[in-house]
Each structure stands twice: as structure tokens, then as C-alpha cells.
């Protein structure tokens, strides 16, 4: 089985966000960057599926600047066979990114293309589904449980108040949710091996963006709250405030 994984380099989720000088992006100074957490589920799933099949190839793609090479090396250290960096300044328009990925992945002969369900920076939640649509491939998004047997995919995805069970055939695109697996940590041996694994770089063919970012700002600060009391005696005070002041009861 030949599997592609799409991986994005994002600011660590524990980062404090500072708005950059252009007023449209974040100030990256001093931030730690990591593989997008949902994409790590995709990497782990690709590795587990290849191990189970006993044969195949896993390839990781990232669209971004030179710094994304470091993120790709992390995936190689986890066990992915080779990496491709699609050099690009990126785009806030998910469709423009999906067009670049579809152009690249469409000719790869992949049985399975895996994404994280969303990237924890722009929260666009769309590139996987769009790429599938552009490629004319079946797609199941936000998958928390996956089985593949004889070319048939069965996937479970959480929906409001239930779990949706969906099926499709390979080749397919799957986007991964938390709960799918527990991503392995790169071993020391893996980190050493990753240095010798192939990492190709080529330019990305981004589509034209029709979404333009006008600005980025910090959300309004919440009004400072107050401690209404200590222990059980404070409960009636709280109830009264919820009723009369917050009016939520």
C-alpha cells in the first residue's frame, strides 16, 4: 500500500499569540513550532497501516518555507520513508493550498492520502476535503476509528450526539481526528536514520486565492471576574448572581 501524509508546521498549542507588525499574521519570534497535532495522527496511522500490510511506501508532504523541512524530518524520524517539501509562502485560502496538493498527489499513485482534520493555526478545516474533491476521490473526514480490509475502508467519525459509520473504497482521502491512535515518539535510531532519508524540494503550484486576510487581532479581554466566596457557603451567592446578574438561570 502506498500512502501519502500531508503535514503542516504550526506554532505549539501552548504558545502565547502576539500579533505581527503587518497586523495580519502572528509574530513568530520566540515561538516553538511543531508538527500539527492532528497530522501526527495521520503519520502514525500511515506507519501502522504499512506495518500491518508488511509492505508499501509512506511519503510525507509539507507545503511551506524552508523551515518546514525540520517538521518533515520529525515525520521521517517517526518512520516515514521519504519526504517532499512543496516550497511556498503558503496561502490563507485553503482551496489554493488544496490545488497545489492535488496537482502533486494526483500523479503519485497513492492508495491512501491522509491529513489531520484541521491545522491548529488557521483552523481552516478544509484542505483534506477539498483536495479529495479536486482529485475525484472518496473522502471521510474527522475519523476517529479506521479499518481497511481488502480495499474497503470503514471509518467512524464523531457527530453531535452520535458516531457516524461511513464506508468507501480505496483509493481514498481520510482526515484524522484525536482518538484514532497514539502517535509514537521518534526514537534515537529513528532520528539518526531520518538524516539519511530522501527529502526532495520543489516549488508548489498554489492556486489563486479568493480569500484575503484583512487583519488579525487579539480577542477582547474578558471583564475581570471575581471570587464570590469560599466553600459551600458561596453556592447560594453564586446562584443569585447567575440568576440576577448573568441571567443564565
Amino acid at each position: 500500500m502506498k500512502i501519502a501524509v500531508c503535514l503542516k508546521r504550526v506554532a505549539d498549542t501552548t504558545s502565547k499569540i502576539v500579533i505581527g507588525a503587518d497586523g495580519k499574521s502572528i509574530d513568530e519570534a520566540g515561538l516553538k513550532f511543531v508538527p500539527n497535532p492532528y497530522d501526527e495522527f495521520a503519520v502514525e496511522e500511515a506507519l501502522a497501516l504499512k506495518e500491518k500490510a508488511g509492505a508499501g511506501e509512506t511519503v510525507v508532504y509539507s507545503l511551506g518555507g524552508d523551515s518546514a523541512a525540520e517538521t518533515l524530518r520529525t515525520a521521517l524520524a517517526m518512520g516515514i520513508d521519504r519526504a517532499v517539501l512543496l516550497k511556498s509562502p503558503g496561502s490563507p485560502d485553503g482551496l489554493a493550498v488544496a490545488q497545489a496538493l492535488a496537482a502533486e498527489l494526483g500523479t503519485g499513485g497513492y492508495d491512501l492520502i491522509l491529513f489531520g482534520k484541521l491545522a491548529v493555526d488557521d483552523y481552516n478545516h478544509q484542505v483534506g476535503g477539498m483536495t479529495a474533491e479536486l482529485l475525484g476521490l472518496p473522502c471521510i473526514t474527522a475519523v476517529a476509528h479506521l479499518t481497511i480490509d481488502g480495499g474497503v475502508v470503514e471509518a467512524e467519525r464523531e457527530i453531535e450526539g452520535g458516531i457516524e459509520v461511513a464506508t468507501c473504497s480505496l483509493p481514498a482521502v481520510i482526515t484524522c481526528d484525536k482518538g484514532l491512535n497514539n502517535p509514537r515518539l521518534p526514537s534515537l535510531k529513528g532520528i539518526m536514520a531520518a538524516k539519511k532519508k530522501p527529502l526532495e524540494t520543489r516549488p508548489a503550484a498554489l492556486g489563486d486565492a479568493t480569500l484575503e486576510v484583512l487583519g488579525l487581532e487579539l480577542p477582547p479581554e474578558r471583564q475581570p471576574g471575581r471570587i464570590v466566596g469560599e466553600g459551600v457557603e458561596a453556592v447560594p451567592v453564586l446562584l443569585e448572581l447567575l440568576r440576577t446578574e448573568a441571567k443564565v438561570l
Binding site: 490563507p92 480569500l211 486576510v213 487583519g215 480577542p219
Partner: peptide, 17 residues
């Protein structure tokens, strides 16, 4: 207007198509 970075920032954007 859409929350990004899980609501740590708000993005304003225009859709032209």
C-alpha cells in the same frame, strides 16, 4: 470574522469569489 489559534486570535477576511 473567524477565531484562529483556537480563539487566541481573531482573523478578519474577505471572500472575493
Amino acid at each position: 470574522t473567524r477565531p484562529v489559534y483556537a480563539g487566541k486570535a481573531l482573523q478578519r477576511a474577505r471572500l472575493t469569489a
